[in-house]
Design a protein around this nucleic acid. Sequence first.
DNA 1: GCGACTGACTTTGAT
DNA 2: AGTCAGTCGC
Length: 741
Amino acid sequence: MPQDPLIPTPEYLSRLNPEQRRAIETTEGPLLILAGAGTGKTRVLTTRFAHLLLTGRAYPSQILAVTFTNKAAREMRERVGAILGEPAEGLWLGTFHAICARMLRRHAEYVGLTSGFNILDTDDQLRLLKQIMEPFRLDTKRWPPNQLMGIIQRWKDRGLTPDRVTPAEDTDFANGHALAIYRAYQLRLRELNTCDFGDLMLHMVEILRSQPNVLAQYHRIFRYILVDEYQDTNTVQYLWLRLLAKREHGPSNIACVGDDDQSIYSWRGAEVENILRFEKDFPGAAVVRLEQNYRSTAQILAAAAGLIAHNEGRLGKTLRPGREDAQGEKVQIIGVRDSDEEARIVGGAIERLQADGHPLSEMAILMRAGFQTRPFEERLMTIGVPYRIVGGLRFYERAEIRDCLAYMRVLSQPSDDLAFERIINVPKRGVGAVAVQKLHGLARTLPGPLTAAVLTQIEQGTLKGKSKEALTSLMEAFQRAKATLETEGQVVAVEQLLEDSGYLQMWRDDRSVEAPGRLDNIRELLRAIGEFATLEGFLEHVALVMDTESETTDDKVSLMTLHGSKGLEFDTVFLPGWEEGVFPSQRSLDEGGNRALEEERRLAYVGLTRARLRAIVVHAASRRIYANWQASMPSRFIEEIPSEYVQIGGQSVESRRQAAAAPSMFASGPFTSTRPSGMPQTPRPRITDVQPQANVPVGATVFHQKFGEGTVIAVDGSRLEINFENGGIKRVMANFVEIRS
DNA sequence: GCGACTGACTTTGAT
DNA sequence: AGTCAGTCGC
């Protein structure tokens, strides 16, 4: 619906700032939109989408818009619909994977699949890989399957099919068999007519590379491409976008939105280089910087800017505060004794804010790792403050849901061996691993899936006794459900199947506390099936789209990881655990060196910029890691925040009583000069009863409480490798040995 | 085939 | 410390 070009400024453009308008009205040619935190990125993206439609530049079906999460896709869809005044139909708007799945169903035959292929979940992937690894007779202790899964995924992230893995890309993992296993795994996936998540991208890139006619078809369809969170793209995603965007004639109308300072997913294959390289990849690209921040106070922005300035190789942005309440509070830095005190202080601050009328839903505690939530949960529970944990187990990852889905998959596609294996003995029907092995053996001699092998064995009488009875009744349950599916639809059929197979009864008989909840989840699942026209439609939805993002508007404090907080905002943000080793994470530093440090710093930047009004950073002097106490130094990131934007607060156990009466949110006491004045290069434990981890020379004789005397043969940071006289070679923390000579 | 025991591990996690 | 998976023995 073309719009009269004479109308000067349409309403949807009127309330945008000049840079935002430029990002929207630069419609032709490649465009990189560098959108800092809180600069209205989503608004620009959705308005741009609507603008392309309203100015008649494209029909809805001619725009490709990709995001990383379903949540982002849903949000974009809703907001585009709101601008258009009607729900937008026929859009190519979705996650990379959902869009690739849609494409791949059209062209599956080019990679040896049929359009009805299944999409494996993480569970199935690993089970399948283990099966593939078996004939290689590897020591699974030394070569854990999940690590190999990681290697294969990284290959896929980089667009490498087995044939494209060069010797330089190969690994000696699994005694050099990794590539062979990868090849066998891919072969098996094809036999099963399935894909894992990585394949959705990988196969489509292969098809677009090798089938010029298919590529040309998409070039004709997509006139404009929009990409969200470009800094998070990995290599296959980049290749896919480039193939679709670069055409022989005419410009590449690709607009990518991203922020190099918020790239925090390199461990998942994301390449920041993609965004840093954009102008080279797409010559003549326009670059628009969105630097007007509408979220945070000037103090918070300046603090965050000072911190992120310590990173090198940035594209560079300067966020300007746009809020009316310009100045605001300084970032508070609180030093505490240990994690218990940390939880008490944060809990107390939350109570005080709440008493002052601040809603709990505007407060969040953001931590580096998921397990750090525990002390906070306990504390909040004790003082009766409602909280919610964001992230964690998703609905469809729960065992009972996966079991039900497996039943449904077999019902929909009896050839789905992986699903059948999952439920063949759930509930327990006396068909164990050995029996499954036998079935497998037979299935291999005949063509066809396991379910067919089972039927053959029942007919031929090869199966006997208990397992024959059990499997006969299971197969009958599937047949009855199949009939019901045609007459009464999927909800009734699935319910009947779960009943007949004894699956529901299994949970009714279960006396554990979780059982009733699990039955509730299953009921919820059955309800959800009804919202789809077909069982297959539902299964596709589950594999790619289903998230349980329950839009809870309850007044609760949010607890989540820093990663999980990206894209969200709160009035008040608590940032606990800012200690060397915890944040930045030692493990991350060990693996990735300076590159990893910069990513940790970006994570800190993401954390700070979630706050609208106040950010409170907390660090503890000692923390229990696994079993033992460790002295800890404040994070270097604290030092890196310019001191003028920081207020040192804090309190000791003794001064907490005064805190309640004090006017400020945190009493400051004489015990609390916890801000490091100049960062020591080596963290030095401040607890007196452990040995300082000072230089332990190789060759020194040391004594360990448990292992006795030994000789140091290597030093690795704070860990020592020691040859003990009667314990062999062990790696222990330097803190736990005494130097004898 | 199932339950008990051992031992290994413990960052981040969308699709 | 606690969990979870994998192995072992009955």
